[in-house]
Design a binder for these strands. Structure first.
Lengths: 161, 161
DNA sequence: CAGTCGTTGCAGTAATAACTGCAACGACGG
DNA sequence: CCGTCGTTGCAGTTATTACTGCAACGACTG
């Protein structure tokens, strides 16, 4: 049986604080709350049923939220052996995975600006200058950001062979 | 007099391509189009009137878009001496300024996760672990990202005392 | 096979947001 | 002082989206 978990006032407030942040990032409210709760929930792994109980929302909403959150790599599904139910949790590598993904649109944008330079192929240099500058910047980021995250990841597991 | 500027089909398509990208980032469509057009417009500086003509939108929308775009530092207002009208353009330092601003929410988020650790002050280490990990990551980024951008900026103007 | 659990799709509602068009305002140049 | 230009606020329209509740489905357990 699943013990229906009640959030304390402080916990609920904190979950909303986290949610508010991700809403600002473009996520729907419930998805933000899921992240918030998964960050502080007492068992770090939570079944969909537990999430609906804790956050007081419909099962559909939880399901939609997970469909939204898992592709980014922040939240992942786990199963326990001998347990049919599914668990969700914040992936240990979730944050860096999420950032990796976000940084990958750096590449997407650079491709767009390069296409702009093709469009202005015949134009005077002065007109092309803006696109050239931003292309340069994004190329720079594209080469540096993955290395940055890699540096962090190796520092995290540092010393472990 | 303001020459009413017609965008070629290719230009309009490219403006929309850029706009689509920024819509994905959460910007309204028109603001995205303004960025797109300011990236390739023949005079890089454009008056509000020129923008309404080029993008075929109401003056209100242009005004709102500028109110939205200028605080981030991407777009800036310029004036020419002896010319009462106002010009907008992509700021030369606009992109790095915009990224600076975006990175600053790294700090905001770290503060939220730290507040979470206060909330879980009495909890077992296993429960605090998630928040500790993400706090560590964001502290790392917080220290590295500004340096990264600074490196680019100095590389841009390299050699100039 | 019966029961449970999670997913998915759909209809309906409510809230939000973008955009337009209009009107009023202030600043400035001729 | 008149005309132009940009800004701002507001009403109204339209489109989008989040969320709920329900129903159907498949997978798996006991």
């Amino acid at each position: 049986m699943t013990t229906t978990q009640e959030l304390t006032q402080a916990e609920a407030a904190y979950v909303d604080e986290i949610a508010e942040f991700f809403v600002g990032e473009g996520l729907p409210l419930i998805a933000g709350r899921v992240i918030g709760w998964l960050l502080i929930s007492d068992p770090p792994e939570q079944t969909p049923a537990q999430l609906t109980a804790a956050l007081q929302v419909s099962r559909s909403s939880i399901s939609s939220a997970m469909r939204l959150l898992t592709p980014s790599g922040l939240v992942e599904r786990t199963r326990r052996r001998g347990d049919r139910s599914e668990y969700f949790r914040i992936a240990p590598e979730g944050w860096s995975r999420m950032l990796m993904r976000r940084y990958s649109q750096t590449t997407a944008f650079r491709e767009v600006t390069e296409r702009g330079l093709e469009l202005l192929a015949g134009a005077e240099p002065a007109r092309r200058e803006r696109l050239e500058q931003v292309t340069d910047l994004y190329r720079f980021l594209e080469s540096e950001l993955p290395a940055l995250l890699e540096r962090w990841r190796s520092r995290q597991q540092g010393g472990r062979p």
